[in-house]
Nucleic acid binder design. Sequence first.
DNA 1: CTGAAAGCGCTTACAG
DNA 2: CTGAAAGCGCTTACAG
Lengths: 349, 349
Amino acid sequence: MATIYDVARLAKVSKTTVSKVVSNTPYVSEETKKRVLEAMEQLQYSPNLAARGLKGKRTYVIGLIVPYHAEHLFHDPFILDIVLGVESTASDYDYSVLLFMPKPTDKRGVYDRFLRTGYVDGVVTLESHAGGIDDTILDELGIPRVSAGYREDLKQINSVHSNDRLGGYLALAHLLELGHRNIGIISGPANFVVAVDERLQGAREAMAEWGIQLDPALIGYGDFNVGSGYQVAQQLLEREQRPSALFCMNDRMAAGAMYYAHNHDLLIPADLSLIGFDDIALPTIVEPPLTTIHQSPTEIGKTATQHLFALINAEIESFATITLPVELVVRQTTAAPYARSIHMGSSLK
Amino acid sequence: MATIYDVARLAKVSKTTVSKVVSNTPYVSEETKKRVLEAMEQLQYSPNLAARGLKGKRTYVIGLIVPYHAEHLFHDPFILDIVLGVESTASDYDYSVLLFMPKPTDKRGVYDRFLRTGYVDGVVTLESHAGGIDDTILDELGIPRVSAGYREDLKQINSVHSNDRLGGYLALAHLLELGHRNIGIISGPANFVVAVDERLQGAREAMAEWGIQLDPALIGYGDFNVGSGYQVAQQLLEREQRPSALFCMNDRMAAGAMYYAHNHDLLIPADLSLIGFDDIALPTIVEPPLTTIHQSPTEIGKTATQHLFALINAEIESFATITLPVELVVRQTTAAPYARSIHMGSSLK
DNA sequence: CTGAAAGCGCTTACAG
DNA sequence: CTGAAAGCGCTTACAG
C-alpha cells in the first residue's frame, strides 16, 4: 500500500505538505495542493489509520457497545436499525466503528481492555435498562460517551431516546378523545426497561387530564413478544368490565392482542380499539392496519453519533438528554367505544 | 494510560522484555515474567493497538462487512446472530471487530477506503445473494476473507453456510415418508438468494428418489415475510388438486401459511402438513408447534471467524466451503396425508 | 506557503 | 535469558 512518502515523492513535495493536504489545512498553495491530490489519486493513497492514531490526537474510530441482554431484547429489530444509524453517520464523518458486544457473563476486564487499547475517540452505547454500562473507566480515560437509549444511571445527560412519555400520552389521549374510559394497558417489563416506565407515566398524565386515575389492575405486563400480547390481552379482556380499548407498548404485542380478538369474535375497532407503539412493518395479514405511535430507531443512532462527534470535537462539553419526536399514526384499529354494541345490544356473542 | 515503558520501569526490565511477556514468547525467566505481569496488573496496562498495528505484522482487528440489502433481508434476525457469532469469536482470539455496512448507493471508493486504511488483518463478509462483495481489492492487498453465507461469485472456497441442500432434502423426505405425494413449496426469492436455490435442489433430489418429478406449478415464490407465506399458501391451496403438505422456506412464511389454514378451516396436520426452515422462536400463539429444519446462524458466524484466523495465522491457505449441519425437528404440524378426510369423507367444510 | 525533525508506543531482528 | 536500536507511517510544533 502506498504511504505518505510515496505520495510526497511523486508530487515532489515533503511529507509534511502531503499531510497538510490530507487534513485540509489552509495555507497550501492551490497548485501544490492539486499536484498532491493527483498523486494521491494515482497511488490510491489512504492514510494508515494505525499511524494516524498513534501520532495524532485522533484514532478516527468510535466504539459501539451493544450489551447482550435477554434473548428477546437483543433480537429486537430496533437494534439493527440503531446500529445502522450509528455506522452510516460515522461513515459520513470518515470514522470507522469498532463493535463490542459484551455478554452478561463477561468479567469486567473484557470491557476495560476494549477501551484501554486506546483505539477509540468516543463510544456510543445502546441501552434500554438497568445493568448496562458504567462511566467510570470512560471518565478516567477521558473518552466521551453518548447513550442511544436511556442511560442506566438515569442521568439526563449525553443520551438520545424517543420521547416515550409523550408517546404514552398521545396514545392515551387519542383513546380518551374517542370516548374510551375503560382502557387496558399491555405494558412491557416495568422497572427494568426505562422506556416502559416513561410511557406509563405519559399514560398516567393523559388520564389525569381527563380526571381519571389509572387502575393498576388494568395494566398487564408482557415481554414485548407477540405471544405475551395474546396472553395479557386475554387476562385484561376477561375482566368483568371488559376494557373497550388497549394500549400496547409495542406493535408485536398489539398483533398478539389482535389475534386474541379475532379468536374471540371481537371486532376491531367496533368492539375493541387497539393502539400499538413503534410503527414497525407488521405482516400485511395482520388486519386491520394498526394505529400506533411512530418512532425512528435509525434517527436515534444518527443523532447519538452526531452528538458524539460534537463532544469529540469539543464543540460542546455535554448535552442534556435529547428526546426525539414521536407521532400518533391513526390507522384502522381505533374508533369510538362500543361502536357496534351500542347498536346491537351489549351481548356480543 | 500506561505505556510499555511505564511497565518496564516498574518491573525494572527493558521494553523488549515486557513485549516478550505480552506476546508470550518463551525464553523469559519465570521470575522476570512474574515481575512484569505484576507491573502490568498494577498499571492496568493494555498495549496500544495503534502502535502494535503500526509496527507489527498484525492489527488485531478484523473487518465485518454487512451489506445493506433489501429491507426485509437486512432485518432478518439471522443477521444479528451471525454478527454475534463473529464478535464473540473475535473476542476469544483477543481481536476487535471493525463494522462496515456499505449501502447499495455507496460508490466503490467507500469500500476501498475501508480496506486501504490498513486496519484489518482479515474480513468476514455476510452474504446471501448476488451483488455482494468482490475479492479484487482484498486479493490486491493480501487481506484474507471468509464469507458467512454463499459467496457471490459462487466459488466453493473460504465460505461457511448451512447445508441448505440437505435441509431441502430432509424436509421433502420427511413429507414423502409420511406418504405425501402432492407437495407444494413456498419458496423464497429464487435465482437471487443462493440458499433458496440450494433448498430447491435438495427438494428435487428427494422427490427424484421417490420417483416424482417436481411440478413447477407447485412452487410459489414469497419474500420470507409472514404475509407472503399467507398469499402463496392461498395460491397453492386453491388449486384443483389441493396439496396435502407445504414445505415453507422459512418459519415466518410457514406461520403465514398456518394462519391461512386457520382462516379456511384446514386442520393442521390432519388436513395439511406444514414444514418450515430455520427453527426460530415463533410466537407461542402460533399453534401447533412447527415441524422445521433447524440451522444455527451463530455457529455460522463462529465457524467463519475461526477459519478466518486460521487464514490469518497462515495455518491454511484456503479451505473448501464448509456446510454446517442442519437437522429435521419434528413437532406437530406434520402427519400422514388426509388423516382426517379419510375418515370423514373428502368434503372438508 | 513549505519542509526538517522529533516522536507517538510498540515489535523485531540482532548482539550479547 | 535480556536489552539497545531501528523503524512502522503518520502529525505537529517549529523554523524558514
